[in-house]
Design a protein around this nucleic acid. Structure first.
Lengths: 348, 348
DNA sequence: CTGTTAGCGCATTCAA
DNA sequence: TTGAATGCGCTAACAG
């Protein structure tokens, strides 16, 4: 094609100045009905659309929100389907406010900072960081509105969105305890226990687990922590662990993904869920209700998490974030078919 | 914080003109070693980062690539976890070329056009459109580089990336035929058969199915098309259909998602996979190998699809897209445990 | 090798 | 109510 249509072209066509056209476009200033009509017509005919680069350069904003996700290898986005739900929820609200979402894959920290400065991002949704590596300080230096998701930062001035992970862990464990289980293993992820504080979400669920144990007067046994990756494969391999721990009658997996792999692993060993091992997951993935048996799990709404995060960000931008700076979304235990009364003798 | 650091500030600090700083930043023009050092030092100290809005306004580009996805409700992103893989692959390559990904949820067509024009997007990744609603023409009017993913547009000048859907459908069906199955149902999605051409990906797989049937000298039976949504729920309900079609010994589901639901539905009816019904899926989801029995499926690499699409887009931008304008990524039949020899008598 | 200058398209004073 | 003029921060052409 040719040259873009600009303010100037419209002005000429409507026989007015560019200032007037600008006023019409932005609904500002006083413009008479007749000229407004004429201008709108010209805009229509020429197919004019304002150049946001120019507008934003002038107004010193970008109406762009960055979704900052951690990367394993520098510059590479972590493989996690949940992010799409988060992004979808965020985009929905952002769009309603005239903002758009841009992806910021966080590799080297400085790169991320540069990105935000260069692109003049108006706000950030930061997923899953901790304040133990100074990452939060990093974003603080940026001095733009940030909403931290699943991050559990201690600074009360920070805006945060998460789910009630601790309650989730508590509810799942309590459910198993109520069914008579006493030796409940925790599929916690591939991390050393002394590094648990760096994975706040997992730590919170772990807290909930311990709390339920405490209330039941049961001791905490570090030997029941299964430290394998939070993945289908990791879960699958947890079955081998289970084979050498015959006193364990239930496993609480911190993710449905791992729970699915684990269920497969258990069945491949010839054991039955839930008759011989009870299983609880976390997340309520789209197919968790459709496994056989259907997975008992702690359900969370990730799309909603994205929505709420952007809403909070909008408030933060308007400086009217006097209300709740930390939003904890509810989780819900969905009891399905992978949990049943303890029958310890079955596998012994 | 305060005011952003701009070219001017650096220039003053280094005692040079802004043009020289610009040259250093962009590695253009001739700058002496000593001044370059001085400028770089100033940049470092002040923490200068170029304002891309200004740069792009000047250079008339944005280094932004839009990922255009369909929405069901206007303005809302369709719920599909695959998109994250696509986005991740695309971002990986885009970032390597100094581009970033922005989300364009396509509701009303005009909105989308405005978005692209206003944000001055340099290129577009358009997912799953057809040329039967004139959507392709829409993007053509934009006159910016586009790569169409999973779209099967007829215009040979268009850049497209897809997988070999037809071969996938063919291979899956042929596999079932080789096992002795003769009545093979197709779980095709919630669309009228006379609208199939509007869903080119499904149509291609359907072509493959028919081709395999033809080669085996078997007639095509429209009565074997199961028209239920491509979702876990849809698949689950397909089990009821199966119950009333006892001559059907195998089902080819056009998506793993639906296949998972179907597997559950079949088992809930008390039937066994694969002894009584063989099942093939499509996609190879992350947990498809971990169902029980493990799902036989046609595997595709969606991350790779995203990568290739951006690579193609980059070539298109450089005008050196003389080579292949259409890339067909391979698919692979993964024979796992949901398919076995036909035993028609089992359920009759 | 380095500095001066003129816009990119727009929003926004300030005059008329 | 409308228009002329200024500058957002940067690049690129041209001068020195």
């Amino acid at each position: 094609m040719k040259h873009d249509v600009i303010l100037h072209d419209v002005a000429k066509a409507a026989n007015v100045s560019i200032a007037t056209v600008s006023n019409v476009v932005n609904g500002k200033g006083r413009v008479s009905k007749t000229t407004m009509k004429r201008v709108q017509q010209a805009i229509e005919q020429l197919g004019y659309a304002p150049n946001l680069l120019a507008r934003h350069l002038k107004t010193n904003q970008s109406r762009l929100i960055g979704l900052v996700v951690q990367t394993t290898k520098p510059g590479r986005i972590q493989d996690n389907p949940f992010y799409w739900d988060l992004l979808a929820g965020a985009e929905e609200i952002a769009r309603d406010h005239g903002f758009h979402m841009i992806l910021v894959s966080m590799g080297m920290p400085e790169e991320t900072l540069d990105f935000v400065k260069q692109r003049q991002l108006d706000g950030l949704l930061v997923v899953g960081i901790t304040d133990h590596r100074g990452e939060d300080a990093l974003f603080r230096t940026l001095d733009i509105p940030c909403v931290y998701i699943d991050s559990y930062l201690n600074d009360p001035r920070l805006c945060q969105v998460c789910v009630d992970d601790q309650y989730g862990g508590y509810a799942a464990t309590k459910h198993l305890l109520a069914l008579g289980h006493r030796r409940i293993a925790l599929l916690i992820g591939d991390i050393p226990m002394d590094q648990l504080h760096r994975y706040a979400v997992l730590q919170q669920r772990w807290f909930g687990y311990r709390k339920a144990l405490d209330e039941a007067g049961l001791p905490y046994d570090p030997g029941l922590m299964i430290r394998l990756p939070t993945s289908v494969q990791g879960g699958y391999h947890a079955a081998a662990w289970l084979a050498s721990h015959n006193d364990v009658s239930a496993i609480f997996s911190m993710s449905d993904i791992a729970a699915l792999g684990l269920m497969k692993g258990i069945k491949d060993m010839g054991w039955r869920v839930p008759e011989q091992v009870s299983l609880v997951g976390f997340d309520n993935l789209f197919m968790s209700g459709y496994t056989l048996p259907a997975l008992t799990t702690v359900s969370q709404n990730i799309v909603q998490k994205g929505r709420v995060a952007v809403k909070l960000l909008m408030e933060l931008m308007d400086n009217k974030c006097s209300t709740s700076r930390k939003v904890v979304l509810p989780v819900e235990l969905l009891v399905r078919d992978t949990t049943t009364k303890a029958h310890l003798t079955d596998r012994q």
